[in-house]
Computed example of a mutant assay.
Amino acid sequence: MTDLPRLAANTPGLPCRNDPAPFFSTRATDRQYAAGLCGPCPIRLQCASYALDNDERAGVWGGIDLTARVLGCGTVGGFRKHRRRGEEPCAPCLHAHEASVTADRLRRLGVEHGLGGTTRGYWLHWRLGEEACRPCKTAQARKSADRRAQARARAERPRVASVTSGAADVPRGAPEGVYALAAAA
């Protein structure tokens, strides 16, 4: 077991001794700043070991943000926990989320390519920020052409004339022989 208090007392210039506030802040950005201060610390490994041996659950110890570890920072679960708490996700959680989304899109794109290229594949290429492959472009072009043809067919379709034949009391679109009831005065 590490005797951290003795080590810290005998080591001059430790950033955690000069200004301990960011090491135990509730703000993730402060804790990230504090973890960066631990980089050149000569007792960094002993500090981290001490925190893990003594089941510390809060603060930054030896460059490890234990508060973030409890949240699961750097994982998709950590990203979700930040969102549920109404916090802005920290950089590691945001990176983990983006990596997960990208991996899922690539997996789905593989499925679409297995089908020979689809419009969904075209849009997955677009979301990934890459140029679509030829089969996906072809599928998208085919769908666009079909939609344009359908729009032209709708525009060219003859309009049905209203069948009122002068009778004002026939409801519009009613079957033949149906008449509107007279309104009570």
Rank of each mutant, 00 (worst) to 15 (best):
N18Y: 15
G63W: 09
T119V: 13
G72T: 03
R107H: 11
Q32W: 12
C41N: 02
W61D: 03
V160C: 09
V160P: 13
Y122M: 07
R154V: 11
A180W: 09
R107T: 04
V163M: 14
A145E: 06
D30H: 01
C38L: 02
G117F: 00
L106H: 11
W126S: 14
V163S: 14
A184K: 06
G62S: 01
Y122H: 10
A153N: 12
S25G: 10
R84H: 15
P12H: 04
D19P: 14
F79Y: 11
A51E: 01
G129K: 05
C136D: 02
T118W: 04
R84A: 09
L52T: 14
T102S: 13
T67L: 02
G77Q: 09
R107Y: 04
P175W: 07
N18C: 14
A139S: 05
V178N: 14
G173L: 07
E87H: 03
H95F: 08
G74I: 08
P20R: 01
A168N: 11
R172E: 13
A174F: 04
S144A: 11
P135V: 01
G110Y: 01
A185Q: 12
W123R: 08
Y179R: 14
A174E: 02
R83Y: 09
R108G: 15
A9F: 04
D19K: 08
L94W: 09
H82T: 10
A99H: 07
P175V: 02
D3E: 00
T118H: 03
L71V: 08
L66G: 01
F24K: 04
G78W: 00
C41E: 03
A139R: 00
D55G: 11
A139H: 02
R85L: 13
D19H: 12
R148E: 13
L52N: 15
R85S: 10
F23E: 02
A145K: 10
F24H: 07
